[in-house]
């Protein structure tokens, strides 16, 4: 068996950041997506949006420079970049639901080959799941990328034929970045466009709940 090394959460965030061009307006969800903020290459202007009414927030402040009035949607302290702006919640979600963002990067419990996203409730019996802005982002943003570990901690696949968990939105995911591969969602199929070095097609397929298509050469 050929050895391969899966990406750390930080490296996965950096891999995603590499694909975000200058000038895009981007919303980052909680978890791995949040780490993308710190991974955007120096000098590349990407404008980050936060649900609670911020465009253009920057990295976390030094511990002695915390501004209690300035948090992101994950309720972490942030800073404001030059040219940043504040607005109220209805305008913030007009930005999201009006299709004005270029991209959102979200976490997921499951993604299906048809682009269905499940990332807000782990069971239909859970009567008090926290939806937050997930459904608005998934539906309103023209590009939805998912950042996730390829499998659950127990090794169960998160990329599946059909989601078992309650949907956040049907048919919205364009691309999935995992710790093992970059996978496009196209016409109801997962298409692998990149794999970590040393990983074989069979090994990736074995950790995936639906048949993959490959646009990468078999690892030699």
């Amino acid at each position: 068996m050929i050895a391969y090394k899966s990406l750390s959460r930080k490296d996965l965030a950096a891999r995603i950041a590499r694909d975000i061009p200058e000038g895009w307006y981007v919303n980052l969800g909680i978890g791995i997506p949040t780490l993308v903020a710190d991974a955007i290459p120096a000098g590349r202007e990407v404008i980050l949006h936060s649900e609670n009414g911020i465009l253009g927030f920057g990295p976390a402040p030094a511990p002695d420079a915390i501004d209690p009035w300035l948090i992101n949607a994950g309720k972490q302290h942030v800073t404001l970049n030059p040219g940043g702006s504040f607005f109220h919640h209805a305008d913030s979600f007009a930005i999201i639901r009006g299709g004005h963002l270029d991209l959102c990067v979200l976490g997921a419990f499951e993604v299906a080959a048809n682009g269905d996203l499940a990332n807000w409730a782990t069971s239909a019996q859970d009567s008090a799941p926290a939806v937050g802005g997930a459904m608005d982002l998934a539906v309103g943003t023209p590009r939805v990328w998912v950042a996730t570990e390829h499998t659950t901690r127990d090794g169960a696949p998160k990329l599946v034929e059909r989601c078992a968990y309650p949907l956040t939105a049907p048919g919205v995911v364009n691309r999935v970045y995992t710790n093992l591969a970059v996978i496009d969602v196209r016409d109801g199929h997962f298409v692998v466009t990149e794999m970590v070095a040393g990983l074989t097609r069979d090994a990736l397929q074995a950790q995936t709940g639906v048949e993959l298509m490959f646009e990468v050469p078999e690892y030699a």
Partner: peptide, 18 residues
């Protein structure tokens, strides 16, 4: 909520604001 003493209506954040 678990004790059944609180009614809950979950609304997506954007729908709530709107």
């Amino acid at each position: 909520f678990r004790a059944g003493k609180l009614e809950l209506e979950i609304v997506p954040q954007g729908t709530l604001a709107e």
